[in-house]
């Protein structure tokens, strides 16, 4: 069945689903920019109920943003993921030591739960990159191809309210 691309996905309570897409990474370090590039692509798709952010790194206040949504998709470049990408659900993790230099998606969800009492569902979209050890605001050819596949998948998942993606993790 064809889906209406402008239809609004709904949460279980019947209200519009609020999804945060956090595509993080450094666009000045080649394929590390895959996360922000994915966030820009999703922003351009203008999916109802979906907010995108493209920070360099995950920060404490991202937990406050996450707490305002039903689901969060963390999009990051990966050195080890099988090409072109992987998608999985992640759970909150209690984070005893804190540094703003290094906050994992699970820790962001953990702070949202432990401090703000919010439990949005969390997903990681890990896009395989190939070149990280240089300076430049472009993606390698393989990474660009992986980005296309990953954003098509994510856009489709977001338009279906993530339910299909949750049912069959890639």
């Amino acid at each position: 069945m064809e889906r209406d691309p402008n239809a609004t996905p709904f949460a279980s309570g019947g209200r519009p689903l609020r999804v945060l897409v956090l595509g993080f990474g450094n666009p000045g370090r080649l394929d590390d920019g895959l996360g922000p590039a994915a966030a820009r692509a999703i922003e351009a798709a203008a999916i109802p109920g979906v907010r995108t952010e493209a920070p360099y790194q995950l920060e404490l206040e991202d937990a406050a943003l996450a707490a305002e949504h039903d689901a969060v998709v963390f999009v990051d470049a990966s050195r080890t993921e099988s090409p072109p990408f992987g998608f999985r659900e992640v759970r909150p993790r209690t984070h005893h030591e804190f540094t703003t230099h290094s906050l994992a998606p699970e820790a962001v969800l953990g702070v949202a739960r432990d401090v703000l009492g919010a439990t949005p569902r969390g997903f990681v979209l890990a896009i395989r990159g190939e070149e990280f050890d240089g300076f430049g605001e472009w993606l390698s050819a393989p990474a660009a191809a992986h980005l296309g596949a990953a954003t098509r998948f994510l856009e489709d998942a977001l338009r279906s309210g993530l339910s299909a993606a949750c049912a069959s993790e890639v």
């Binding site: 030591e97 804190f98 401090v115 703000l116």
Partner: peptide, 20 residues
């Protein structure tokens, strides 16, 4: 640690995030 703060003083921990 920060989780200890969140458990013993949840309002303070929340303020920290929202001020940030």
């Amino acid at each position: 640690n920060v989780i200890g703060v969140a458990r013993a003083h949840p309002e303070l921990a929340k303020r920290g995030i929202l001020m940030r």
